[in-house]
Design a binder for these strands. Structure first.
Lengths: 210, 210, 210, 210
DNA sequence: TATGAATGAGCCTTCATTCAT
DNA sequence: CATGAATGAAGGCTCATTCAT
């Protein structure tokens, strides 16, 4: 309830072809359609039918692949996170060896951009109904951020902080920066202030690359 | 849409008398009932009727005082913020004169506790449908946090940062701390990590952190 | 239901003076307020509260004078008709003696103007819920139109027609003319066509004033 | 609002199977159910649910085919008019060649019968909320009546009148006759008076009425 | 008498989910 | 596997009517 009020017209009698796809492909199409719909209409207004329509499938098809709307959201979240993390792991470990801090800042920017692109999506995923549903540990951003901090601390480039707590705080700082940029524009200013915070908070005074 | 599926019992039989109140009193009861309902059921599942029922009023009464659900949320938010800010302004300015940093840290703890008590409420209010609705400037926490930082910078106890950006970041750090405590308990540990961040980030170097 | 969708805001807590009136006066104010409201908002959108508001009375006051909305409509209809008929009886009988046809045409124009001014009101009154409710015979327009025709026939100025049937037809011709003018403007053209019909239909070929 | 107060029984228990129809079939069933409901309950008391129930469909089904109650009424009107006009065009043109006036009178009777059968329906359709909604020109009765008059004038069987105005008046005369018959019975008497009017008004003086 | 806050039945409309084809 | 028509529980909102003051 309480959804926004632009009405959507439903229609009957328009028939389209039957597209037979491999299950994997169909499932992926639905998830990607969901991404697009959630982004463009916002999580509050997104409906099952919008998703299937965007995916070029029939409404009923949805339930062949997802048992409920929540189920889809969980899938979408996993999809996004695992995509992000895969890319991140390609980037980060290699560079991290030589100059952790530089790699870290770069990664932060990646993350900010990633979240900013998410737009309203992150509400659906991080603050919506499934907020309480646990995330598979290997793809949890918490896990990955923690691991990143850990390597930083071990390399001496990062101050000695409580990793799990710091990971949460870091996460929210990045999120807020992304939100601010999304709302206000002025990317450079927000990034600079973020770096200012991160350096003061986490960087060891001497770069100390052992 | 997509609300969670716990069924709700319709109260049966117990009808009490008509209670005639003066408008402000009834309005207040409704707002307070809304607070309670939002807290206990979460914003997704809260319905108009839940609120009126909790307030001991009939469904239609709701619409004598609020033109829609959103209207209520806005009212609830204003209610909470103005309550918080009133109290804060009683506390802060006095102490701030002598030892700004101590007052600041104390205020941060107040804020964290305030948010933590909010529980699910803060989702309804800060991440829900009315997230985009502007807050009356005088009661906006952004305004107040900014003002707090400004006094800190002027008094020399706080580093020279971009106030508006820092206010956003500070806000989210406090929020995250509150959320973490709410989820994980272990208040001291999270507060300590928060202080660690705040000191490293905002404190002028005078009293070394070590 | 199915009313038009402009929402009306209700308000609480605005208090006004208590006006004590003689019952007759209050009742009349309400009826006249109803006339005004029905005219301006149309019968579909008119609400009890609109009427009392327009009359400067409280909502509950309505039910001191009318037992229901229908009751009001009946009253409004009686009010209008009796007002019209009173005026008509002042006009018609006097003139009718000397030149019935001229008086008749004049009266037709009066009637058309009267109905046209009614606007949407006549829907509420002649085609709405109370359409089936009998009208007090002495103020029924049918009665009066019949009587008018009767005098015309007796005076020889009007063709010999079945009075009750002709009265219905005449009534609808006048109504339609009024509606057309209301919709299309161009009063003269519609009146002329109406006269053309009436003359061909009802006038005796020789004026035959016996 | 202000609907009449007869309570309605909610049908209980008897639930039949899901009937899957092709869209046009279901749409037709709904329109016909609407016709029946409007006839029997009158436009004021008809509800969406009455229609779906009469059509043996679920409430929600209504909104698959009509976006609102008004939308349905427009459809119903179009349905009726186009049905009538189709039949009329089969009848009229053929006969009109030889004896326009006879054909015209016959058509008038058809129309009166048509309207009389409509009963309360014509309130819903000609005096209700959609009264102002334009009718598709090809099925507008005004259009057709005008065209009928035009052929009459051209054939010399009908007096030279202002076609558009006369069409309106004719229309209302037919309507009133139908209404009268519906209320009072005595069909012959009302038809005769109507013919009397029409002949005096529209017929060229050839065959004297006597 | 007058007031206007309160009530709650009623109705529209939406949409996740089901299921006949 | 796919389709899309059908379902019906929900819930927002309105407003005639009641009644405590």
């Amino acid at each position: 309830m309480h959804r926004s009020t632009d009405s959507k017209q439903k229609k009957v009698g328009v028939k389209s072809k039957r597209r037979r796809l491999r299950p994997e492909a169909r499932r992926l199409e639905l998830v990607e359609a969901a991404l697009s719909v959630l982004r463009s209409q916002g999580p509050i207004n997104a409906r099952v039918e919008d998703v299937t329509e965007a995916a070029g499938a029939a409404k009923g098809t949805f339930y062949l692949y997802f048992s409920s709307w929540e189920d889809l959201l969980i899938e979408v979240r996993a999809h996004l996170l695992s995509k992000y993390i895969t890319e991140m792991q390609k980037r980060f470990p290699v560079e991290a060896l030589s100059d952790w801090w530089a790699a870290f800042e770069k990664e932060c920017v990646y993350f900010v951009d990633f979240v900013e692109e998410l737009g309203d999506l992150h509400k659906a995923i991080f603050h919506g109904q499934i907020a309480d549903h646990p995330i598979d540990s290997p793809i949890s951003s918490g896990t990955v951020v923690s691991w990143m901090l850990k390597t930083g601390i071990e390399s001496g480039a990062c101050r000695h902080v409580e990793i799990d707590v710091a990971a949460r705080l870091l996460f929210s700082v990045l999120h807020t920066t992304a939100d601010s940029i999304g709302q206000m524009g002025d990317r450079e200013r927000y990034l600079n202030s973020m770096f200012d915070l991160l350096r003061a908070w986490l960087r060891t005074s001497a770069p100390a690359v052992m």
